[in-house]
């Protein structure tokens, strides 16, 4: 379908890093079923580096592709670098998305943040709450 770029279709058809990490150090889930997108990210973190990352996604082709792309962009990076990855960068790496689909990629950034926040919470690491907006809220996710 010409709706999506080649890169989106590649990541959709052959998603990287799908699955679950057992004993993950941080897990984040955002989105909700009512909206038709749920994204879950699992992180394995060692010495501040994201050693491994996996995702599970319920959603459209684009949601799956942006999950896959986000995991690729983050794997092996430091937590700070991971937190700096924005939706815009994910969309750019995918070669662009149709305008009415942009909201799907909002979830990728939020899912990563949510997983890092979980990691901080589990380990009692202090953080600036403003950096971790409460996602999973339908309206916010669907603000195009």
């Amino acid at each position: 379908m010409a709706l999506y770029t080649k890169t989106v279709m590649d990541h959709f058809m052959n998603p990287r890093n799908v699955g679950e990490i057992e004993n993950a150090d941080g897990v984040g889930e955002v989105g909700n079923a009512k909206c038709g997108d749920i994204m879950k990210m699992y992180l394995k973190i060692k010495d501040g580096i994201i050693e491994d990352i996996k995702f599970e996604t319920f959603g459209c082709g684009n949601a799956i592709a942006s999950s896959s792309m986000a995991t690729e962009m983050i794997k092996g990076k430091s937590i700070e670098e991971a937190l700096a990855v924005t939706n815009k960068q994910v969309v750019e790496a995918l070669g662009g998305l149709p305008v009415h689909k942009l909201h799907c990629s909002v979830l990728a950034e939020e899912a990563v943040k949510s997983a890092v926040k979980d990691y901080y919470d589990r380990n009692g690491i202090p953080y600036d709450k403003k950096r971790f907006p409460d996602c999973g809220n339908c309206e916010a996710c669907h603000m195009v």
Binding site: G59, G61, N62
Partner: peptide
């Protein structure tokens, strides 16, 4: 249950099946 229609359509299309869905996407 548990899946989203658009991704289903894209995968079916890749396997040569043209169908449709009522999903939001």
């Amino acid at each position: 249950e548990g899946i989203e229609g658009e991704s289903l359509l894209l995968l079916l299309d890749a396997k040569g099946i043209c169908a449709s869905s009522g999903s939001a996407c």
